[in-house]
């Protein structure tokens, strides 16, 4: 292995434009030399910026380095170049699975399988995620947002005192911030009510927010509850509003069942 690294490095020094950087980067990654692997692949990408497999390798190095958010961005950018890239779909599938977003994981793994139906690692991953998804639905049929995309990471129903009622908010890094976000919602609602009262705008209906890594919508399905939807930046505000309407209907039904 060490000889391979030495030989490939020598070859790359002889011809810096050589594609051998991919093999070298992969080898260093599998050896756990992540800083060296990152340097090799980034230098290679400077010379071959459109080489999709190099972007894929870079993302996998980032995953090994536990920089999951950055890896996601690299794979998403790669899909802008090649929307059918199997490695990117497979990688994003695993990332979404890790965050508990089974719907998104299934979407990406199915696209990965479509790119190469013979890839056994994708077939097995898809089977495993499908099994988990089926068991989750079977375990919790009363969940307020069962069947909703992102129900376990970007949908939160809270009361006006800032207590979570249903759903979850999980960051891209996998941190469950449900309780913290629910607490923030109470403060936001108080500020919104002050603002509309002072400006004589009537009752507030919704708050739409764009941030660097996501779009957010806050609405009130019932007088005592707040519904927050968090989605990626690529979901337009209009679609977010339609989704929130459906989720509000589901929340109202769920609240109706919960009320004694």
């Amino acid at each position: 292995m060490a000889d391979d690294v030495k030989n490939l490095t020598a070859e790359l020094i002889r011809d810096p434009h050589s594609m051998v950087f991919l093999r070298l980067g992969e080898l260093l990654r599998t050896e756990g030399q992540l800083d060296a692997a990152r340097k090799v692949v980034l230098t290679g990408l400077e010379r071959h910026p459109d080489m999709v497999d190099a972007h894929d390798l870079y993302a996998r190095i980032l995953v090994d380095a536990n920089d999951l958010d950055h890896a996601r961005k690299v794979w998403e950018a790669l899909l802008q170049i090649d929307g059918r890239h199997q490695g990117a779909h497979k990688g994003l599938g695993f990332l979404h699975y890790g965050r508990g977003d089974l719907d998104a994981a299934l979407d990406h793994l199915e696209l990965a399988l479509a790119a190469d139906p013979t890839n056994q690692s994708v077939v097995q991953a898809l089977r495993a995620v499908r099994n988990v998804a089926e068991s989750v639905v079977a375990e919790d049929p009363q969940d307020a947002f069962a069947g909703f995309e992102g129900q376990d990471r970007g949908l939160l129903l809270a009361d006006r005192q800032g207590r979570a009622l249903a759903g979850r908010v999980v960051t891209w890094q996998g941190v469950d911030s449900t309780e913290v976000v629910a607490a923030h919602l109470a403060g936001i609602t108080q500020e919104m009510e002050r603002a509309v009262r002072m400006l004589k705008l009537g009752d507030w209906q919704r708050l739409v927010v764009e941030a660097t890594d996501g779009n957010v919508l806050l609405t009130s399905p019932s007088p005592d509850s707040l519904l927050l939807v968090v989605r990626d930046r690529d979901i337009p505000a209009g679609r977010l509003a339609l989704f929130a309407e459906r989720a509000s209907d589901a929340a109202r039904s769920w609240l109706g069942v919960q009320t004694p």
């Binding site: 960051t171 919104m192 009752d203 209906q205 708050l207 890594d213 968090v230 505000a237």
Partner: peptide, 30 residues
């Protein structure tokens, strides 16, 4: 004050740094 509260929530939810907010009410918008 509203923007700061919203910024804290977007940051906590993983949505990142606040860029734009739109508060829609029955008789107007902020």
């Amino acid at each position: 004050s509203l923007a700061k509260h919203v910024a804290n929530a977007t940051s906590a939810s993983g949505a990142g740094v606040l860029q734009f907010l739109h508060l829609q009410a029955i008789s107007g918008a902020l």
